Each structure stands twice: as C-alpha cells, then as structure tokens.
Amino acid sequence: MGILDSFGALVSSIIASIVLLVFAILSFFITVFIVQVGAGLAGYSPSGDFVVLSAAILATGAIVAGASPLSGLSEIAE
C-alpha cells in the first residue's frame, strides 16, 4: 500500500498547489484594485505598469509573510 499512499500524497499536493495558485492570482487582482483606488483617492493617476508593479510587490510580500513560520514567536520561554 506504499505506492497508493504515495500517489495519494502526490495528488493532494498537486491539488493544494493549484488552490494556492488560484488564491495568489485572486489576491493579486484584489491588490491591483486596492492600489488603483488608493492612488485615485490620493489624487494620483499612475500608469498601469506602476499599478501592476506595486500590486505585485505587495501581493508577493503578503504571500511570503503568510507562508513563513513565525518560529521566533513560537518559542516563548516560561
């Protein structure tokens, strides 16, 4: 049954990767909207490439920060 367990782990890993990719794309689109609206409220009208660049940097930072384990906070000395 080792092969079937490995195959199940592979399939679940592929499904998890697809779900995470969909969430990353969705968060990027939401971040583009937020950056564009925020720039409009501030009175700026940046070109599309600057909006996409700033949204990509913000979305990447959020994804990396969410994926990194906070190991420094988990080792609280009593």
Rank of each mutant, 00 (worst) to 15 (best):
V37Y: 05
I63R: 12
S27M: 12
A62Q: 12
V19L: 15
I63S: 09
S17L: 14
G48E: 02
I76N: 06
P69F: 05
Y44L: 09
V22F: 13
E78V: 06
P69I: 12
S54I: 06
A42H: 02
A77D: 13
F50K: 08
L4G: 02
V35M: 02
S45C: 01
A59W: 01
S17R: 12
F7P: 01
G61F: 03
S12G: 10
V64L: 10
T60K: 00
E78P: 13
A62V: 07
S54F: 07
L58V: 13
V11I: 10
S47N: 02
D5G: 06
S47K: 11
V22Y: 03
G8A: 08
I57T: 06
G38H: 02
L20I: 15
Y44M: 12
L70A: 13
I15H: 04
V37F: 13
L41Q: 05
L70C: 14
S12M: 10
S74E: 11
S71A: 10
P46G: 03
G38A: 14
A16W: 14
V64G: 00
I15K: 04
I76S: 11
V51W: 00
G66N: 05
G61K: 00
S68E: 09
G66C: 02
G8N: 06
G48V: 03
I15W: 05
I34H: 04
G8E: 06
A59L: 01
I3K: 12
S54P: 00
F7G: 05
T60G: 11
S12Y: 05
A65V: 11
V11K: 13
S17Y: 15
V19I: 07
A77V: 14
G2D: 14
E75Y: 04
F50W: 15
I57G: 12
I25R: 09
S68Q: 06
V37W: 07
L26S: 11
A56P: 00
A77T: 13
L26I: 04
G48N: 15
I18S: 11
T31G: 01
L41D: 12
L73I: 12
S71K: 11
I15G: 01
V51K: 02
L20V: 11
E78S: 13
T31D: 07
G72A: 03
L10Y: 09
T60L: 07
L58D: 00
L53K: 02
A42Q: 10
L73K: 13
S17H: 15
F29T: 03
G40L: 13
S45H: 03
S17W: 10
A9N: 12
F28E: 00
I34Y: 08
P46C: 01
A77W: 03
V51N: 01
G38Q: 09
L41C: 14
